[in-house]
Nucleic acid binder design. Structure first.
Lengths: 328, 328
DNA sequence: CTATTTTATGTCAACGTTTACCGATTCTCG
DNA sequence: CGAGAATCGGTAAACGTTGACATAAAATAG
């Protein structure tokens, strides 16, 4: 920028006062021409901000991850903030390690998906270092930080009630990773639905998976090997439900004729599977958007304006082709 | 850090000389205790590095995106570099806009997935601003930047040859988004296979999709409405192949009995679909890892050591349950 | 046409680190 | 024990930007 001090350039580009129209115009033109952009490191240094938002999650299904990212990115679209992805496995066993990773990453704020959002040790650490965080569908300590939730129990109750209302009573349940709070909440909802229907959960028909297809397949095989065989399977996510369908098919069972299967999440698999899965829509995208929105509001000092810190999003039961009344 | 100059702290933590063992030890202990980390903005400012790597792609299937990310993240695991995700739609129509976005993001380097990796205008811009880039499976200008490829044509040839060898001749083809170079390369492979088999591609049986399930479904319906009906469908990715299966089913056609379907990518859908899809494995994770590896080597000034700039990864034909000889 | 305000431009310092350099202390060896 | 080398600690400057403040120029008022 010839003949102009950096200060003036700064003022011109930032639409600060005390710059003549002519100079501002010229500076902007020249900047555009040279594709000049102020050095972010220098801006960060002085503003004490990195304009980086982190997103942490733990090897869940691709569609969940992408929804999460796209939701957050949708809010960041103006380009002022950037999204850094920080997947991390086995948080439960080493929360401080994730904490150090996050602190070292130089973020302005962090979005925590399950199960990281439910690690008190991690939250302690973030608070100690004054790193703002948003929690997406946490299960415990709902008064800490920015919280965006869906009522997992209500959703679980809805899908279980659907199977019960069709007449199923011998219902196998494939749990997700027990360290994910969602797993507990959904199970809680199942229990309520059974209670409401005057039915009881047979603990022998409850097996633990980890939200993955492969483990879900083995769990389904285990359930279907029992006698009397369950007439329906409630899987805690769609990947495991798809696996249950595959297991049924490999045993020569028709879905939903011989076995009804319900999933959870309304992920892509639930639509590409055959028959299409009855599932529950979890508005992941919207929740991630909302969490990012409120995190940024907090970073910009507008948190008080936006009101309460917690926000609930509604679930939606999607009855599709994988569930029907039991055969007998 | 009481009683010690910042300089000494810096030296101690960076294992630089001129610090006594005692002081270094003490500094390190105190730093660990306070979870102190050097300010990244300040380090970036002086080092003229942000330690941020960008990853750009365009709304492809979730599993592709996640493989891409995980591949790159696998290489970044030491935590020195961080990954910023920058999805961008319709690059073809506005490459300079993406260029500006990338330049403004303050990255040290950028990984480009299709179709961004094939935009000469974008590459020009990045080179003009000396922003190093790695290209994952580009189709054109293979001598620019760091290039990681799979021979799409060879892979396309393999899957087409498979159908031809089963005896299919009326083969419908569902193309992907024509702006993705992969689409062209795969088609080229199909042509070669047809040529080798002494067969001809019937252009009326070639329809254009965009790699998405929904458009794939409509394309499949269009193909299956023709008479004589094709006995097989080659879809350029698994999502569209899954859609083709659904379309066949909705018309009462058995797969693979009445219609064989082959996909591309070995994505999650290809395994959760039923019947499981015959497809081609594209080692996305490894390619992303490799691209990140070589990009970082270049950033660290070690690019000459690693040798050639281009690298090919092998495809793998996965014959599963969705293909069989034609009925008649 | 001067006094006063408004507007435009420039200077200095600061953000937190690292590099380059310098002085002081301790060590080594003749 | 003294000369040189190695080690340790510190100071000044720089990275590129912006905020606080000062000064110069232009516009306005009296």
């Amino acid at each position: 920028m010839a003949g102009v001090t950096p200060k003036t350039v700064s003022r011109a580009l930032n639409d600060a006062p005390h710059v003549s129209k002519a100079v501002r115009q010229k500076v902007k033109e020249t900047a555009a021409e040279l594709d000049y952009h102020p050095n972010l490191a220098a801006q960060s240094l002085i503003a004490r901000r990195s304009y980086l938002i982190g997103l942490t999650y733990e090897r869940p299904s691709p569609s969940y991850v992408v929804d999460l990212q796209n939701g957050a990115l949708g809010r960041l679209e103006d380009g002022r903030y950037r999204l850094v992805v920080l997947p991390f496995n086995h948080v439960a066993s080493r929360p401080e390690e994730l904490g150090r990773l996050l602190l070292r990453a130089g973020l302005d704020g962090i979005l925590l998906a399950p199960p990281a959002c439910d690690q008190p040790a991690l939250l302690d650490m973030l608070e100690r270092h004054k790193l703002p965080y948003g929690r997406i569908t946490p299960h415990s300590e709902l008064d800490r930080g920015i919280v965006v939730t869906m009522d997992e129990a209500a959703a679980g109750q809805a899908v279980a009630a659907h199977l019960l209302s069709l007449g199923h009573r011998r219902i196998g349940i494939i749990l997700g990773d027990p360290s994910h709070a969602a797993s507990l909440g959904r199970m809680e909802g199942y229990r309520r639905a059974f209670g409401d229907a005057g039915a009881a959960i047979d603990e022998r028909l409850v097996v633990t998976g980890d939200f993955t297809y492969d483990v879900g397949y083995r769990a389904a095989r285990e359930l279907l090997a029992q006698s009397p065989r369950p007439t329906a399977i409630l899987a805690q996510n769609d990947d495991m439900a798809a696996a249950a369908i595959a297991a049924a098919r490999d045993l020569g069972l028709a879905v939903p004729g011989d076995l009804s299967v319900a999933g959870f999440d309304n992920s892509e698999v639930s639509r590409t599977a055959w028959p299409q899965l009855t599932t529950v829509n979890q508005p992941v995208r919207q929740m991630a958007w909302d969490a990012a929105d409120r995190l940024i509001a907090a970073l910009d000092g507008k948190s008080d304006v936006s009101g309460s810190r917690r926000r609930d999003h509604a679930h939606e039961l999607l009855v599709r082709a994988s569930t029907a009344p039991p055969a007998n």
